[in-house]
Design a protein around this nucleic acid. Structure first.
Lengths: 199, 199
DNA sequence: GTCTATATCTCGATAGAC
DNA sequence: GTCTATCGAGATATAGAC
């Protein structure tokens, strides 16, 4: 296997383990075992744990950008795009109930560790925040687009935390419906009623 | 110093470190140092890390019960009691921006570790949940009191996560105002207008 | 009840053979 | 580019003196 493929394999495994078990709780040995490598070979690709964390965050940034672009492509109206965001709570509900939100839990852990990469992790939130704000602006809410984006992001994080603690699937569905109802009240009727038909 | 005082001192220090740095990232040596004890003495009081975690969670349960009782004593109306809950986001904003919510972050970490105590930690949420539900029931919302309680708990958790990631104090104040406005819309006008005067 | 000393393990990280 | 062998540090945990 070439160096770049092995490196990518390491990043993929580390990404999964950092999410499922946490950054601190995941050892090099864990990553090497799941990637099918010896620990010695591992250090050929990554010198420090912080290096692999940076690679994981960088990979998540790229994946997030791709998802946001796909949502923008696949939905005609800004309201439908926002609904795409809301619905990841349902799509990923099983993993969220087991391990929380990948972004929120990483930011929390790095904040507690006062880790140098905590700002980089928070930038993952900013990707969603700025994208959502653009959709709200397109819905005619230029003045408070960022506040609305943060509000929706806040709700999705709150749902993720409680879904993990209580493992309550009905709660997730209820709050997603509530977020959609809130969305209705926040935006001009025309663009929303049009988009509702496509749901 | 007597055994019970030393034990309490250990639990207090562990409680703080588990919150500030996380459970996994806190070592026995850290706790012993901050408590002014040798590691050897430490093991006289607690045999395992799980034992001290159980003591920390137990202590938090007692403190939470005391806080909820104080809120019930010091506020005449259920609406004011609910506002007492909402306002811990402002009271504790500095610590929340640095280390998140003590309950939410612990539940997230224990869920990832698949720790035996994760259900016990989630019971801390249940204390707030049940208490809030009782207040909503007293406000005439018996039918959906629990859903309303979970919704408010969800919002407070979402605010805590984003406040940690973005370290944005204005965001906290804005969302607290929004929660109060939401509270207005959810409950009969009479009991709320009365309670508003006392804020 | 508190201490020092120590055992044992696993961690992140390195050296060097192939 | 991958391996085995190994290092030092720090982790949990124990033994035994006082």
């Amino acid at each position: 296997m070439g160096a770049s493929e092995t490196r990518q394999q390491i990043v993929d495994v580390a990404d999964r383990l950092f999410y499922e078990r946490g950054f601190e709780a995941t050892s090099f040995a864990d990553i090497a075992r799941d990637a099918g490598l010896s620990r010695g070979n591992f250090y050929y690709h990554f010198k420090t744990k912080d290096e692999i964390l940076a690679a994981v965050i960088g990979g998540r940034v790229e994946k997030t950008r791709a998802i946001l672009e796909a949502w923008a492509r696949n939905a005609d109206s800004p309201a439908d795009r926002i609904r795409s965001f809301v619905h990841i709570l349902i799509t990923n509900r099983t993993r969220i109930m087991a391990h929380g939100c990948p972004v929120g839990t990483l930011c929390n852990e790095l904040a507690k560790l006062d880790h140098a990469a905590k700002e980089d992790a928070a930038r993952l939130f900013s990707l969603f925040r700025d994208w959502l704000a653009r959709q709200f602006a397109m819905l005619g809410r230029e003045a408070d687009a960022d506040a609305l984006a943060l509000h929706l992001l806040m709700r999705s994080q709150g749902v993720a935390v409680l879904a993990t603690a209580f493992r309550d699937e009905a709660f997730i569905y209820r709050e997603v419906s509530d977020m959609e109802a809130w969305l209705q009240t926040q935006c001009p009727a025309t663009s929303l009623s049009r988009s509702r038909q496509s749901v």
